[in-house]
Write a protein that binds this DNA or RNA. Structure first.
Lengths: 200, 200
DNA sequence: GTCTATACAAAGATAGAC
DNA sequence: GTCTATCTTTGTATAGAC
């Protein structure tokens, strides 16, 4: 009586999802295994197969949960009209800064995108949808900022959104590789200065 | 009598390197195998081990060749003082546009960075060095452009370099995932407009 | 230099006991 | 729901013939 059409995950299933997400964010999809998850949780591989019959299904569940949470956050940010557009942008960037605090994590979908051709088809589609959703959301915020004269730039908002999104994903990638914690901070500060019309 | 300290690769070795590079750029390091290369070249796995005893050594050889070629290109671009700084930047971006023309390739080091924690240590170091070299090179070009008043922006060149580099890497990642060929073009146009002081 | 054959480990996955 | 046991495939790697 408690299950929705897409049934509630049990506690163990939740733990598996969390572990799998962390592993994909740090090592990638191809390089993580049921064994890794089993070891970390102190259970057997077979138990994971009970909750997620195949690796593809596990991957899909991980991305769906991640995208759902992110989506809720985006909606809540955009819903509060009191916020300035720059504040909304700051809120958007928060999760990226959370990842950057760790030594080993990038955006889940950024990690998956790195090996997109090695992914099951359903997983690929979801990463693609994630990217498009985020760029569309950013474009809206940027357009809003232009209208309210909080932002000053000449490009089309949709194109500026592509720069912002790509720069965030790229910054996480570079940051994790070089280990330089200031990579993301530098990039976002320059970006924000550019959005404010700070050409000089 | 023809070998340097780091011996000349034979023709077969060259073919293996090329194939391996293409496979890493499209599928990633973890997801490509000796079998893939063997199939594509019509040879046996064991023959590849003759040229490159381990996968790690093959990976290192691929990155070294890639970085060496890129490095030569960077030096040649910067050497010609007649060029405007924007022209130098355009030259820098050329390889990215070549990758973007394909449906499945990103920068080799961008691909490797996506699974950096799953890489052998020596490979990791080389990807890190590649990133740092490129960002340093970009910082120099950007600083030159400021001095010559070809660029107009208020950020420190090193920080702007981080934005430019991350945006290029990110744009390739997004482009391959969404399949939208204009992703890189849009990002570079916005970037260049920003560098020219085009706040509005 | 390339081949066949083989070793060995790890991966994803299933059957069936508890 | 979790376990043991097992299957199958694939991956990396080596030995030795040609």
């Amino acid at each position: 009586m408690s299950d929705n059409s897409t049934q509630e995950p049990s506690k163990t299933a939740e733990e598996i999802l969390g572990l799998a997400q962390a592993l994909i964010q740090s090592r990638g999809y191809s390089a993580f295994s049921y064994q890794d998850v089993a070891n970390a949780l102190g259970i057997r591989k077979a138990s994971i197969h009970y909750h997620f019959p195949s690796k593809a299904e596990l991957g899909i569940a991980v991305v769906d949960r991640y995208a759902k949470r992110f989506r809720a956050s985006l909606e809540s940010i955009a819903a509060d009209e009191k916020h300035s557009s720059m504040t909304m942008l700051d809120h958007y960037m928060k999760p990226y800064f959370e990842f950057a605090k760790t030594s080993d994590k990038v955006c889940l979908c950024g990690a998956l995108a790195g090996e997109i051709l090695a992914l099951p088809d359903e997983l690929r589609k979801r990463v693609e949808r994630f990217f498009e959703e985020h760029q569309a959301w950013l474009a809206e915020i940027l357009a809003r900022g232009l209208v309210r004269r909080e932002f000053v730039f000449s490009a089309k908002p949709a194109k500026m959104a592509r720069l912002v999104f790509g720069a965030l994903q790229g910054a996480l990638l570079v940051k994790r590789t070089t280990g330089d914690a200031s990579q993301l901070k530098d990039v976002t500060l320059v970006l924000k200065s550019q959005l404010s019309g700070g050409g000089k």
